[in-house]
Nucleic acid binder design. Sequence first.
DNA 1: ATTATATAGATGTCTATACGTCTAGATATC
DNA 2: GATATCTAGACGTATAGACATCTATATAAT
Lengths: 242, 242
Amino acid sequence: MTTLISTEGVPLYVKIREVLRTEIINGNLKRGQKIPSEDELAARYGVSRMTVRQGILDLIDEGLLYRRQGLGTFVAFPHIERDHTRLTNFFESARQKGIQVAQKILDVQVVPARRKIAEALDIPVGEAVIHICALRYANYVAVTLHDSYIPEKLFTPILSENLEDTSLWDLMEKYGYRVKRAIQKLEAREAGPEIARLIGIDPAAPILYKERKIYAEDGTPVEFTFCYNRGDLYSLTVAMER
Amino acid sequence: MTTLISTEGVPLYVKIREVLRTEIINGNLKRGQKIPSEDELAARYGVSRMTVRQGILDLIDEGLLYRRQGLGTFVAFPHIERDHTRLTNFFESARQKGIQVAQKILDVQVVPARRKIAEALDIPVGEAVIHICALRYANYVAVTLHDSYIPEKLFTPILSENLEDTSLWDLMEKYGYRVKRAIQKLEAREAGPEIARLIGIDPAAPILYKERKIYAEDGTPVEFTFCYNRGDLYSLTVAMER
DNA sequence: ATTATATAGATGTCTATACGTCTAGATATC
DNA sequence: GATATCTAGACGTATAGACATCTATATAAT
């Protein structure tokens, strides 16, 4: 029985998960190789089988391992970065990549929700929504125009916040709604005269058009956004599973 | 204690999960409402707490419930269709929507992998790959041009199959590789003369360009595809989580 | 009034055990 | 040789209980 890293406050199943992850990343457990059985790992680390199991299932969820009943658990090719599945915030993700980001708020006002917005946010047509129109820059070049709508009822105080420098999602969390999920519809379109003028491109230039509906942890729709992304400067990577 | 549906062969945790799901869909458990505690459900259905827990965690994974330690488990707004996260096969998904689908194979041949393909499929540059070029139709209109590459070594016998009428993924499964995950990079582009001619659109028309890398269950890259989708007829919906 | 402290209720972690089910391979039978 | 059956190993499901941790609320101390 090997001893686990003696870190207090860290659950055993997390320790075991991380030990396995390390073995995989280091290459001690190679791609396609069978890892020790649940029973064996339990004995090795002196924990119960269910504890080992919990750690393993986490890694399976991440795509690092896979298993077949009756056969065993095997190392998958550790290629899929979980990040690509993840919903990330514009500021965080761009800064991580070392890109200089900024945004200019073009307009903030309370307006009545038109039908499409109301349906998306699950509120009555005509109810007040906060409309935030922002131009986002990467390395000082305008890349994306954002047309966001959020329910006024839930976020009234947000109007007095500094929207230009603070992440909208952080503000939402401050007011009790933790952003959790998004559904995005993607299309390729021509920019058209209006978007072209705002972003500063040719009206016939291709745009990655995105309709984004964002939900809080409890399923409340908290944001509906139209995004117009410069086709030549913006790409989106997503992961999907069967 | 309520009795569960007496279905043999169905695990208890699945039954409990489905009972809860039904209650949520029926509206007996309403949005935002606290569901009974794990202990109470265990008592009610005469099973152990861990069994209830397993069912609940499944529903949390699906986004139907959420929970906070110390507080309880609550019903989320059941809006997010799991399907949008799912990687689906062209034939399956289109037919479900009642769209008439077909494809025409323009070219099938074994070629040496150029650098980009080789890197994606994790094989040496120059190794044999099967190139499949297909035009896909929805309701008899050409919508998408597919440029797929699959490792020849893994799928040699596929060359003698009927590629036009059979799903490539089904064939792959037949040869031992179950398609599981994909990473897709999306961009908006101009069609350009070649794609425009093949699909039959204007060379300046916007195209949703997609680079798709597909992995089998064990992490093996099994397909790398360039997709050119007509901007005006194709949209893609994806779900993401934080 | 404000601040600590205790407590009840809920989820989070963990154990030790049992039996079910699936898979591959060995063995036996025809 | 082909087919059927057995078996060991591994994951799948399930139990009953224990203690930890977190949250909100009630109570006590200041």
